[in-house]
Design a protein around this nucleic acid. Structure first.
Lengths: 228, 228
DNA sequence: GAAAAGGCTTAATGAAACCTTAAGGAAGTT
DNA sequence: AACTTCCTTAAGGTTTCATTAAGCCTTTTC
């Protein structure tokens, strides 16, 4: 519903992580704080993030290692490194992996937030959906819960619209079931996934006038909306 | 692939500007060096840039003023500020205008180039469509779990797609069995490797339309995907 | 040159995931 | 109170797909 921006924070230091996540929260960001790379990997499967802030020095898999994984799986997700020391060699390594920026501790929170806003502005511009979305012969206006085709208008419910919007955001690629459940229903239990199935089925029916438009299932993963 | 990337450098100091533009030129960038905001405005009309590097302290219209203009006219063009002093207030101002980064003099050229590459990668990735990988006559779109050949589409399962992707990442060289098992299955026991064999076999069948495409085994090591 | 280890392919299996229609039932509206 | 809307639950049948098994083949080692 809300267009709050979701940040993944990977930081093993409890007090520092707490302060930073609280501060970011106060600034209106939705923050998920992982204390280890493993935790972060789990979070990535369940949520859609717009930015990752990664501490480098971690026990186990370090920030660099995690970033490499991240870059393979979520190429479009920008990330920033946090580091206690500002070694040039570390920075070069970070940028080489694909880092967006490099911030040294102690962190000036005000500056960090300014950078985050600048970054999100850069990356969100292209990602944001237009008012009207074309899906084959259909036109979908998320703000009005309206789906129309050849003059005929279907009024969608809030849930239907949210799901369709999510599918549109990833048109032509996978919309993870887990992420959809988390984002729309806030739960991933057996009943809720059944409920989601019902919604998918309903959307398919609405979209059945254009045979080019399909919502295909990827077994165990999620759905892909195709429109050609 | 390295189509020359065009950078607009706005810097009034002759010797510093000369050194920097030469260095960037050596790094394979195409650099247009403007010594005043007016000059830069003219250059903008004649060329397509992928990045602007702006000194802040300039006679006449300063870097901030120019950036505002720039941001209005060329919203997509990312820019970096150069500054002799690192005043927080300046940096906040810069980011607020929409700067991508902020670099203080003296400039570490190596670091600057690393940042530039990171930035360009970021901005290029945004525009890229779902990645398509060519394998001989085949086209593989990992995001769609699809393998197509001469119009015929094969839908892959999540596992199949993961394995094929891994093979593609090392096309022409060894994909270690161990690594694949670890990365995809998370286990390396006897049963799991047998399972992997079945997957390799299935991929071979899918890819059998082009005799140039082969998945060859390296005894005890892993597999190599060839496509010519 | 024989034994052992590793590999290839096809087919069977069974659990998990998926699809659709229809029946509750809660909350809001008339 | 009756109606409406919308989400969930139920029910059932269907499909999917990773694994296992089985039989034969290839490579390496001793």
């Amino acid at each position: 519903m809300e267009q709050s921006l979701h940040i993944l924070l990977l930081e093993d230091d409890h007090s520092f992580g707490y302060i930073l996540s609280e501060y970011l929260d106060l600034q209106g960001f939705q923050v998920s704080w992982a204390k280890s790379a493993e935790e972060a990997i789990n979070l990535l499967e369940d949520h859609l993030f717009q930015l990752a802030i990664l501490d480098i020095m971690l026990p186990g898999l370090d920030g660099f290692g995690f970033a490499k994984l991240l870059h393979q799986k979520h190429e479009q997700l920008p990330f920033i490194f946090l580091s206690a020391k500002s070694l040039k060699i570390d920075m070069l390594k970070g940028y080489k992996i694909g880092a967006y920026d490099f911030i040294t501790k102690p962190v000036d929170e005000e500056l960090l937030v300014a950078k985050i806003h600048a970054l999100l502005r850069q990356t969100q511009v292209q990602k944001s959906l237009p008012e009207k979305i074309s899906i084959g012969k259909y036109t979908f206006i998320p703000a009005q819960f309206q789906l129309s085709c050849e003059g005929e208008i279907t009024k969608l419910t809030a849930r239907e619209a949210e799901l369709l919007k999510l599918l549109c955001q990833h048109k032509g690629e996978l919309t993870s079931r887990k992420i959809a459940l988390h984002q729309i229903w806030g739960a991933t239990d057996e009943f809720t996934r059944k409920s989601m199935d019902v919604f998918v089925s309903r959307l398919r029916k609405y979209l059945s006038k254009d045979s080019q438009v399909r919502i295909e299932n990827v077994h165990g993963q999620g759905f892909i909306l195709f429109d050609k």
